[in-house]
């Protein structure tokens, strides 16, 4: 079994599992920076997954498919943002509603357009291509490790850099952080708080859409009901563990991906896979406790004013 763990197959299995988590984890990072408690990522991912499949099936053009998928996901993000920002819906409930909509609405659309109820497996929709990097793919070990993965795998890692750059190096990123940290102060220097949060949510939707599209156009070649299976929630946890830092969040997404891959492998060896599947959640809880103890100790030792800590944004009055 050890030689399986160190095999290339297992390595790429980790990447396959982590890719949707990284995309959505980055979406969650932007949402958290803008201090929006968004749990609607499942809904965004499902609609994007379906949109991508349908768009690419009807036009047989990958780019159009991606465009339709992205728009589908961003529409859900926009609905979320509109209800939360302008109609003052409680974010948790708006998220719950949109996840429910994602689950039921996609089934409806599939049935409306194809007459099937479970999946789109008989539609000839397109997949993201595998990328063989010229030059690197011919290097013995490194080539197998780095080259030959699905395009989305590379895009996911690029999105980490992109989000880091957006948040730390751009005007928009600064504004997003400002409205997240202290909306009153941001408003007092002329930043339109609602508009900035709205834009942040749309960008968040864009990233979550890629997470969803990878599920139906890479991980699997078709859309099935509820295919995201809680990945949106896991990404939120990864974001929380990563303290809103894109690189740390990516690391936790990889840890979750590793645990999922181990779970899959255990299943194929007829071992009880539940413990492997449970591992990431237990690790998260322990991590949160450790972080909680640490911050508590800091607060008691140095009496500093409690300026917007990264977890504060997730608190909401029920």
């Amino acid at each position: 079994m050890l030689n399986v763990i160190f095999s290339f197959d297992f390595f790429s299995s980790i990447l396959r599992m982590s890719t949707p988590l990284i995309f959505t984890g980055m979406a969650a990072v932007i949402g958290a920076k803008a201090d929006i408690l968004c749990i609607a990522y499942e809904g965004m991912m499902l609609f994007a997954a379906l949109g991508g499949v349908l768009g690419s099936f009807y036009t047989q053009n990958l780019l159009v498919g991606v465009l339709v998928g992205v728009i589908s996901g961003m529409v859900i993000a926009a609905i979320f943002a509109y209800f939360v920002m302008y109609l003052e819906a409680r974010p948790l409930l708006a998220g719950l509603a949109l996840n429910t909509l994602g689950s039921g609405g996609t089934v409806y659309v599939v049935y409306l357009l194809t007459g099937m109820k479970q999946n789109t497996s008989n539609l000839q929709s397109l997949r993201f291509p595998d990328v063989h990097i010229p030059g690197i793919s011919s290097i013995p070990v490194l080539g197998d490790l780095i080259s030959g993965h699905n395009l989305c795998v590379y895009l996911a890692f690029l999105s980490v850099i992109g989000v880091w750059f957006l948040i730390n190096k751009t005007r928009l990123g600064l504004r997003i952080r400002a409205v997240g940290r202290n909306p009153e102060a941001a408003a007092s220097v002329g930043i339109n708080v609602k508009k900035t949060k709205f834009i942040a949510m749309i960008l968040s939707g864009l990233l979550a859409s890629f997470g969803g599209m990878y599920m139906s156009m890479g991980y699997l070649p078709y859309f099935t009901t509820d295919m995201t299976a809680g990945r949106g929630f896991i990404s939120i946890a990864a974001q929380n563990m990563g303290l809103g830092n894109p690189v740390l969040t990516m690391l936790f997404c990889l840890i979750f991906g590793l645990a999922m891959a181990v779970g899959n492998m255990a299943q194929s060896y007829r071992l009880p896979s539940q413990f492997a599947s449970m591992l990431p959640y237990v690790v998260t809880i322990i991590g949160l406790v450790v972080m909680g103890i640490k911050t508590k100790r800091e607060e008691t030792h140095i009496k500093k004013p409690t300026a917007g800590s990264s977890t504060e944004g997730l608190e909401e009055k029920a």
Partner: peptide, 27 residues
């Protein structure tokens, strides 16, 4: 308890504990 003692965000802890309950139960 985690929220009170260790300042853990309740919704995140709850999401995690749901999966622990699920997999432990299935096991």
């Amino acid at each position: 308890i985690l929220h009170v003692k260790y300042n853990v965000v309740t919704i995140v802890a709850a999401l995690m504990i749901n999966y622990v309950a699920l997999y432990l139960g299935l096991y």
